[in-house]
Design a binder for these strands. Structure first.
Length: 804
RNA sequence: GCCGAAGUGGCGGAAUGGCAGACGCCGGGGACUUAAAAUCCCCUGCCCGAAAGGGUGUACGAGUUCGAGUCUCGUCUUCGGCACCA
């Protein structure tokens, strides 16, 4: 047969078309088959088109999916579009084109680009979060959350651009200023929908112990949830019936609490207004604090400020001494009780504050020097100046004081989380409308489920209104409606949902994407779920990944899904950087366009390089030379057709190498060690070249191993080898440990741990007998040169170490 | 400050406590060619040496071990996340 040159521009579209027309990658609804659900993070279809951030993780999961298929699984590898979001909306504002129009164009472009990469995706299951048939169920889930009391309205600050007069998402605030106009961003309090994710803090934390996520993702989520155990303690306010409750993780240091601090917003100030003599100063301080942007609070406010409350004093419950109460913005209203007991001897922030304002510092844990800094070590300290706690370790003192407080009704052990409730409202157009109406008589009323989806109305302007309302608020006809409950006049909620809503459950929709009775049928949910393997970016660990675990856990609690955790396994990829080692960006001018790379070297070579360039979980700079090298590797595989021997055998001389390669590739793919899997295939190809030929049987094994990574060339060669159907459904090759065994192997001879020579040794030698046998070998005797031997260690197949 | 990951040739990177640098890139040499490209073969950590060979080497300093890139302790650096969270 005439072997033409390797031409990916011909064979890649050909096989893509074949796969699609033959439906090779359609997940089957035969629920008796063993299933495997591979999930990739669905892209936001931006106007820029696919970028290098997409092919790497997608290729990785495609490799897993293709291997699973060859192992006999009914594989689900779906894709869709997370298409609500700001760029389409900003484009609408600028060009007065409905976001739907640009979104559809972008999706079409993304779809085409994605298909050119040859992923084994089931294109029949595409979802689009902006499709009413999809967001109907996003709204439905929101209504269930609302009905279970998990959604509520609260006054929350939003980012407000003082120049654009509009609300901004956190992502739009860069270094404290508006991303678009560079003006100052302040916090403006608005009434917003909130989701009670904090009610699930413990469940989300515990669930992590039951799933196989990469450790750093678990650690990051644990950190974000931020559980800490401590005690709440009541401090009496002198000469009143009032108490001030604090949360502390160090109840053991109670004897060292020399003052208290409340946050500027703490209700105590209002409650005791008539007794406080410097109310004006406190109110002024509170207002100054509220005007501070988040940026100022976190970046510029390390220097402590505060005002002492005049006229009100607290009593330390263990010492009985009166202590002053201060107001300072280093205490946050949103954590704990909004008030602290300050122990300047043993807390760095309290220490700095006490130093600045001349407050007393008392040592209650010995071991440090509180004149120079706060002593915060809880491991080795011993209690002093602490009455009945003296002499105890910190750990014992904690338990004893907590018990003491509990017996007197002054406090109790408590758990707090850093996790905050999820701000779910956006004053934006391009998002899911929140399906609630507000009735004067009934309050917030959910739309009946049979009225879903609540469609996004056509608007004249896409901008947030002057007073920070969603553009929907300007649509009087749409806003004014009647209460579904009592029929009185009512107004629709005009805020929309955040982009995180649609992505919080999309993996469920893939299981049954056209169902119009439920978000997915119970049968499909039971069969396909949970997701077996989910790969995605680390940047989504604390938002998308946590949000979707929360929604899923909620759906489990209300009986919609039958398993508490949505993802059994989570892995993460490293970014592809520009050739200069910096993050790819237009402004840096180092963007590599996947379309151009496919044009230059082909999709297969791109896929091979993306997987070969380095460890999958690490960021790696792009290298055009490296990519060209992968194209060369495929050329070498292709040209092996010219040295093909007409035999289905695997030759004795290469048998061990072939089996070793099968083993290496099989195991490395499971560990996502794609780079070494590809290196093993390169090594095998080098072996074939060295032997001058390859049999058809050997070639078939190689092509099957290569097919998950470079599927087009693999299909083409497979067909030329006489394969009748797609190799995507051929069984994955097996290896035989016996076949990998050789009679003799080269080992190193070490003297005192240093390599001094090599020799051939029979592989049958065991560690025990090997030393004795090999000591007689002439190579060893020559190296020893008669020196006395103290000890001999033989590591079978590796080395002989002689201690002299 | 806290949590996490990582420091290996000119470069990307390999190495269940067992021959450091697999595989690829870059570079050098050879074959083929009128020539070039492509391709095929060989060399390629550093230092000394004509060579044989020797020395040295995985951020730094100690330690455990017959043997350490790998394990332990300490130090430094880089990257990622969180951060007045009591």
């Amino acid at each position: 047969m005439q072997i033409l040159e390797y031409n990916p521009a011909m064979i890649e579209p050909k096989w893509q078309q074949y796969w699609e027309e033959a439906g090779v990658f359609h997940a089957l609804e035969d629920h008796t088959l063993p299933k495997y659900y591979c999930l990739i993070e669905f892209p936001y279809p931006s106007g820029e088109g696919l970028h290098m951030g997409h092919p790497r993780p997608y290729t990785a999961m495609d490799i897993i999916a293709r291997k699973r298929r060859m192992e006999g699984y009914n594989v689900l590898l779906p894709i869709g579009w997370d298409a609500f979001g700001l760029p389409a909306e900003n484009n609408a504002i600028k060009n007065h084109v409905h976001p739907r129009v640009i979104t559809e164009e972008n999706i079409a472009r993304f779809r085409g680009q994605t298909k050119r990469l040859g992923f084994s995706v089931d294109w029949n299951r595409e979802v689009d979060t902006t499709d009413p048939a999809y967001y109907r169920w996003t709204q439905w889930i929101f209504l269930q959350l609302f009905k279970k009391g998990m959604a509520y309205k609260a006054e929350m600050p939003i980012n407000w651009c003082t120049s654009c007069k509009c609300g901004l998402a956190n992502e739009e605030v860069v270094d404290g200023v508006c991303e678009r106009c560079g003006s100052e961003v302040v916090r403006k309090v608005k009434n917003q929908w909130m989701l009670r994710i904090t009610a699930y803090a413990q469940k989300l934390l515990d669930g992590l112990d039951t799933v196989d996520f990469i450790e750093r993702a678990k650690a990051q989520q644990r950190n974000w949830i931020g559980r800490s155990t401590g005690a709440e303690v009541d401090f009496a306010i002198a000469d009143s019936g009032e108490t001030l409750r604090v949360f502390t993780t160090r109840p053991d240091t109670l004897f060292g609490a020399t003052y208290m601090v409340i946050s500027p917003e703490h209700p105590l100030v209002e409650r005791m207004r008539d007794r406080i003599s410097n109310c004006d100063a406190l109110v002024a301080y509170r207002e100054a604090a509220s005007r501070k942007s988040d940026f100022e609070r976190t970046e510029l406010a390390k220097d402590k400020t505060g005002v002492a409350i005049q006229g009100v004093t607290a009593i330390n419950p263990v010492t009985g001494k009166p202590i002053p109460i201060w107001v300072s913005d280093y205490v946050l209203m949103s954590y704990g009780t909004g008030a602290i007991m300050a122990v300047p001897g043993h807390d760095t922030r309290d220490w700095a504050f006490a130093r600045k304002f001349g407050l007393p510092v008392v040592e209650v844990v010995a071991g440090g020097d509180i004149e120079t800094e706060a002593y915060t070590d809880i491991e080795s300290g011993v209690m002093v100046n602490s009455g009945f706690l003296n002499g105890l370790s910190v750990e014992k003192a904690k338990r004893k004081i907590t018990q003491w407080l509990k017996e007197r009704g002054l406090g109790e052990e408590t758990v707090k989380f850093k996790l905050r409730d999820w701000v779910f409202s956006r004053q934006r157009y391009w998002g899911e409308p929140i399906p609630l109406v507000h009735c004067e008589r009934c309050g917030w009323v959910p739309l009946p489920e049979n009225e879903l989806p609540l469609l996004l109305p056509q608007v004249e302007k896409y901008e947030t209104t002057q007073d920070g309302e969603s553009p929907l608020a300007a649509m009087g006809e749409w806003v004014n409606t009647v209460c579904p409950h009592c029929g009185s006049p009512a107004k629709r909620e005009t805020d929309t949902m955040p982009q995180w809503a649609g992505s919080s459950w999309y993996f469920l929709r893939y299981m049954d994407p056209r169902n119009d009775q439920a978000l997915a049928s119970p049968e499909a949910l039971a069969y396909w779920g949970p997701v077996d393997w989910y790969n995605g970016g680390m940047e989504h660990t604390t938002l998308h990944l946590l949000y979707s675990r929360f929604w899923h856990r909620f759906l489990y609690d209300i009986g919609v899904v039958g398993y508490p955790e949505p993802y059994l396994k989570r892995t993460s990829h490293g970014f592809v950087l520009g050739e200069n080692g910096e993050k790819m960006s237009k402004s840096r001018g180092n963007v590599i366009n996947p379309d151009e790379v496919i044009r230059d070297i082909g999709a297969d070579a791109l896929r091979v390089y993306e997987m070969f360039m380095g460890a999958f979980d690490q960021a790696i700079p792009w290298s055009a030379n490296g990519a060209a090298g992968c194209r060369r590797f495929l050329e070498r595989v292709w040209r092996m057709q010219e040295m093909l021997a007409d035999s289905d055998e695997i030759r004795e001389e290469v048998r061990a190498d072939v089996h070793a390669c099968v083993k290496k590739v099989s195991e490395d793919i499971e560990r996502m060690k794609f780079n070494t899997a590809i290196a093993a295939m390169m090594t095998l190809v080098n072996t074939f070249y060295a032997s001058g030929r390859v049999t058809r049987g050997e070639m078939k094994v190689l092509v099957l191993l290569l097919s998950p990574v470079a599927p087009h060339i693999a299909e083409e060669i497979w067909q030329r080898l006489g394969g009748k159907e797609s190799l995507a459904c051929r069984p994955w090759p097996k290896w035989d440990e016996e076949a990998m065994r050789k009679d003799e192997i080269e080992i190193a001879i070490q003297i005192g741990g240093k390599v001094r020579g090599r020799m051939m040794a029979p592989t049958s030698l065991t560690a025990g007998e090997g030393g004795q046998v090999l000591m007689e070998a002439p190579e060893v005797r020559a190296l020893l040169d008669g020196r006395p031997v103290r000890k001999v260690i033989y590591v079978p197949g590796r080395l002989l170490n002689i201690v002299v």
